[in-house]
Design a protein around this nucleic acid. Structure first.
Lengths: 138, 138
DNA sequence: TCTTGACTTAGACAACGTCTAATGTAGGAT
DNA sequence: ATCCTACATTAGACGTTGTCTAAGTCAAGA
């Protein structure tokens, strides 16, 4: 993730302390935080950071393709730092935790042309739902 | 859909004019409306219907399994009257319209056991994204 | 027809996200 | 090293979507 800052500077980004902190929060483990969680964790490192800046920075990172926006339910979007490798999501129906998974095969192949209704299909998202080990025993 | 009202009465529902109108709006073509769109169309038939009632009725129909809630983006949820047949969704990235599609093959088969992390996987949702004919020319 | 508990209503409230105008600052120019 | 300025940040208003509450209404059984 340290080279993320390099990449961003290469694209003309100003490296402000706020952007550095947001990048640092997204780095590390692979939990997918909501924007508010990112803001809360960023504020531990830089108390005066504003919500607007976190939203702005997340939006910019998404359009640069550095992170992915995931909305598996109707609630707050979550941000997935693992944007450089194609993957899908396995979501616990009970507690909402998300794991990245890598299904095999061509996901687009299942949709025949006569089922595409003239759409230019560009992407496929698959969400597997079930109970995680913790929730299935409890 | 007329038998929907019968089924609901069988489950102890009071058949109010508001619920009748919401069911009527959901019937017919297979577009997936947002709650606000359902409210607007219901209000054409019954002008004094309130937003709260529409939300309540939609929620009740969802928990009864009569319709499906679809949230393909972070925006408003849409309601799919075609809840009794398994299907997936094709979404326009531009305007958000949704079509029901029926991909071939076993969608669960793509996820090998070592990628399930001990989850009891119960369901798969697939969202195909692309531009609809209207948006790709405009 | 009466009664009652379920239903509906208006509008306040909550969660999530966006926008604006004023202020601050990174980093190139001097 | 300092200055300049365009870009970034901020607080808070605002927008959208959805939920909740208290008071009034009504479907349907007695």
């Amino acid at each position: 993730m340290s080279d993320l800052l390099e990449r961003l500077r290469g694209r003309g980004w100003r490296l402000t302390s706020q952007r550095r902190v947001v990048a640092e929060v997204l780095d590390g483990d692979h939990v997918h935080y909501t924007a508010d969680e990112v803001h809360a964790k960023a504020a531990e490192l830089l108390p005066e950071i504003s919500r607007a800046t976190v939203y702005n920075t997340l939006g910019e990172l998404v359009s640069l393709g550095e992170i992915m926006e995931v909305s598996t339910d109707g609630r707050a979007k979550r941000y997935d730092p693992n944007a450089h490798h194609a993957h899908q999501h396995l979501v616990c129906s009970q507690c909402g935790t998300i794991r990245d998974v890598h299904p095999t095969g061509d996901l687009l192949a299942g949709l025949p042309a006569e089922e595409r209704f003239g759409f230019q299909v560009a992407a496929v998202e698959v969400t597997y739902r079930g109970l995680c080990p913790g929730c299935s025993t409890a």
